[in-house]
Amino acid sequence: MNTELRRRGHPADRVAALLTQAELRVRAASKFGPIASELLVTPAGLEQATRHRVAAHHAERFRAAGCTRVADLGCGIGAESMAFLAAGLTPHPVELDPLTAAFAEHNLAAVAARHGLPAPEVRVGDAERLGPGDADGVFLDPARRTAGHRDTRRLASPDDYSPSLTFAFDLATAHATGIKLGPGFDRELIPPHAEAQWVSVDGQVVEMALWCGAAARRGVTRSALVLRSESGIAELSAPADAPDAEVRDLGEYLYEPDGAVIRARLIGDLAARLDAGMVSPAIAYLTSDRLTATPFAQAFRIIETLPSREKDLRRALAARDIGTLEIKKRGADVDPAALRKRLRLQGSQHATLFLTRVAGRHVALLAERCVDAGSPAPSAPPAPPGNAEPDPS
Rank of each mutant, 00 (worst) to 15 (best):
334 V>K: 01
211 W>F: 15
5 L>F: 14
275 D>N: 13
390 P>N: 05
107 N>Y: 05
49 A>W: 00
29 A>K: 03
70 V>A: 03
11 P>W: 11
263 R>A: 15
11 P>V: 02
358 V>Y: 00
13 D>S: 11
352 T>C: 06
285 Y>G: 04
109 A>S: 13
212 C>F: 15
342 R>A: 14
182 G>D: 15
93 P>V: 09
39 L>G: 02
297 A>G: 04
263 R>L: 15
344 R>T: 13
283 I>R: 01
26 V>E: 14
256 E>Y: 01
368 E>G: 00
162 S>P: 02
53 R>M: 03
190 I>K: 14
377 A>E: 07
293 A>N: 07
251 G>R: 00
336 P>C: 04
298 Q>C: 05
195 E>Y: 09
294 T>E: 04
47 E>H: 10
204 Q>P: 04
219 G>S: 12
371 V>G: 05
378 P>T: 07
215 A>V: 09
121 E>P: 03
356 T>E: 01
37 S>D: 14
42 T>M: 03
294 T>Y: 02
388 A>I: 02
336 P>R: 00
149 H>K: 05
194 A>Q: 10
280 S>H: 06
136 D>L: 06
176 A>Y: 05
379 S>Y: 02
371 V>N: 04
382 P>K: 01
195 E>W: 09
97 D>E: 15
26 V>D: 12
181 L>I: 15
49 A>N: 01
200 S>Q: 09
314 R>K: 14
153 R>Q: 15
74 G>M: 02
232 G>P: 02
372 D>S: 09
2 N>V: 11
198 W>S: 12
43 P>W: 03
230 E>Y: 11
338 A>C: 02
357 R>M: 00
131 G>P: 10
214 A>E: 15
185 F>D: 11
324 T>I: 05
284 A>F: 12
195 E>H: 09
132 P>M: 14
51 R>Q: 11
272 A>I: 09
123 R>F: 06
27 R>W: 09
193 H>P: 11
107 N>A: 10
313 L>A: 09
299 A>M: 03
196 A>Y: 14
211 W>T: 11
50 T>G: 02
162 S>I: 07
348 S>F: 03
371 V>Q: 08
317 L>Q: 07
331 G>T: 00
359 A>P: 00
347 G>Y: 10
127 A>N: 06
253 Y>A: 01
139 F>H: 14
213 G>W: 13
